[in-house]
Simulated scan of single mutants.
Amino acid sequence: MPPAIFYDPTQLILRSWWAPDQPGAFDDQRNVARFAVRGSAEVAATRPEFLALVAHWDFRSATTRLDEAKRIDRYGHDPLPVIGGGDLNATASGPFPAQPDWSAVEPRLRAHKGVRHPDGTWTVDTEAVDHLIGRWMSCGSGPDGNRFGGIGFHAVAELALRAGQPPEQAFAPTVNPGGSSLLIDWLLVNDAMRPHVIPGSYRVHVPDRAPYPSDHRLVTAVIAL
C-alpha cells in the first residue's frame, strides 16, 4: 500500500517528485514532494516553497520503524518548511498518548506495537517517533515537561495541546475501535514550518457511526505560507 499525496493544482505547483524507480533517487528523496505556492509572486523563482513527505511505516517491527525514521531525519533541519505525515504505526513518549492495558492486549499486536522489558513488563514502542520529535522528560509528578534529543521535527498534535486544545482532543487515538486504540497517525513539521502551523486547526476526525470507512481516522491541520 504505497502512500500518496493529493494536492490542488490551482493552489500549488509541483516542483519535483521522485518516482520510486527513478534512477539516481535516494531512499530519503522518495515520497517527498516539493511544492511552490501558486499566485504568491509574479516571479516563479520567488514563490514560497515547501516540502511535503508521506510515510507508511512497518507495522511489525520497532527496529524497522526506527530505521524508517532515520531515513527522513535530515529534513528536521532543512531550510525549507517541511510537513510530513502518515501511518507511522508508532506513538510517542509522554503523559498524554493513551496506552492500552498491555496485559490484556493480544500477543501478536503486543509484539508489533510494544516493547518488552527485562522484568517482563510491556510498554508502547516510542523510539521511532521520539527520534524525530525528542523524548519526553517530565517536570515533577504532573503532566508538565519538555522534549529533548529530537532532530528538528515537532508533532502538530503537541503544538495543538500547547495552544490550548484539551489532551483528549489533541491526543485522540487515530485508530477506530477494534484496533490498537493508539495515536499512530501523525502530522509532523520541521523547525522552518512550525511558525506557519495554525495549532488550533488540528483535528482527529472521529466517525459518527460504524461501519467505519477505514480502521484509521482522518487527521487534518492547516498551514499558512
Results as ranks from 00 to 15, higher is better:
residue 1 M to I: 08
residue 5 I to R: 00
residue 10 T to R: 07
residue 12 L to R: 06
residue 14 L to W: 02
residue 20 P to K: 04
residue 26 F to W: 11
residue 30 R to V: 15
residue 34 R to F: 00
residue 38 R to D: 06
residue 38 R to T: 02
residue 42 E to G: 00
residue 44 A to L: 08
residue 47 R to N: 04
residue 49 E to G: 03
residue 50 F to H: 07
residue 51 L to F: 09
residue 56 H to Q: 10
residue 56 H to P: 00
residue 59 F to E: 06
residue 64 T to E: 01
residue 68 E to K: 04
residue 68 E to F: 03
residue 72 I to T: 13
residue 73 D to Y: 01
residue 77 H to R: 01
residue 81 P to C: 12
residue 84 G to D: 01
residue 85 G to P: 07
residue 87 D to G: 03
residue 87 D to K: 09
residue 89 N to L: 13
residue 92 A to Y: 09
residue 92 A to L: 14
residue 94 G to Q: 06
residue 96 F to W: 15
residue 96 F to P: 08
residue 97 P to V: 05
residue 98 A to I: 14
residue 99 Q to H: 13
residue 100 P to C: 14
residue 101 D to Q: 12
residue 108 R to L: 12
residue 114 G to R: 10
residue 119 D to I: 08
residue 124 V to A: 14
residue 126 T to I: 09
residue 132 L to K: 02
residue 135 R to E: 14
residue 140 G to D: 09
residue 141 S to H: 10
residue 142 G to T: 01
residue 144 D to S: 13
residue 148 F to D: 03
residue 148 F to L: 10
residue 151 I to E: 07
residue 156 V to I: 14
residue 159 L to Q: 02
residue 161 L to Y: 01
residue 162 R to T: 08
residue 176 N to Q: 12
residue 178 G to M: 14
residue 182 L to W: 12
residue 186 W to A: 03
residue 188 L to V: 13
residue 192 A to V: 13
residue 193 M to P: 00
residue 194 R to P: 04
residue 201 S to L: 07
residue 201 S to T: 12
residue 203 R to K: 07
residue 206 V to R: 03
residue 208 D to S: 11
residue 210 A to Q: 06
residue 210 A to S: 09
residue 211 P to M: 14
residue 212 Y to P: 04
residue 215 D to A: 03
residue 216 H to L: 07
residue 216 H to D: 12
residue 217 R to N: 02
residue 218 L to F: 06
residue 219 V to D: 03
residue 219 V to W: 01
residue 222 V to G: 01
